[in-house]
């Protein structure tokens, strides 16, 4: 097996900084919820959530540092098939004439 997975471990300060960033993200989510953005409120909320999730995956779960891309591909495939489930289900619900 040639894949070697050596973490370039970051400093304690780096991880704490990431954590603080995530907390700021949470605060932003709450703040944005109180601003009337019309249909974009949920979009913004999910966008921030996704950015936070990506940060966690990349830095806390070390996908960014892993020399192999397999872990990233695996987790992406999960979200991909989840997207299929949701989008094709909604293809039904959003186009029903008898809602």
């Amino acid at each position: 097996m040639s894949e070697h997975e050596e973490h370039t471990t970051h400093s304690q300060g780096f991880y704490i900084a990431i954590g603080v960033g995530l907390l700021i993200g949470t605060a932003t989510t709450v703040g944005a919820a109180f601003v009337n953005l019309g249909p974009f409120n949920p979009v913004v909320a999910l966008l921030i959530a996704t950015i936070k999730a990506i940060v966690v995956v990349l830095f806390f779960m070390h996908v960014k540092d892993a020399s192999e891309k397999l872990a990233g591909a695996v987790v992406l495939s999960g979200f991909f098939f989840l997207a299929i489930l949701i989008s094709l289900s909604l293809a039904d619900y959003l186009t029903r004439s008898w809602r």
Partner: peptide, 12 residues
Amino acid sequence: YLFPLLYLISRH
């Protein structure tokens, strides 16, 4: 994901 989806619907 749960937090904004459950707690923050139409809070404005």
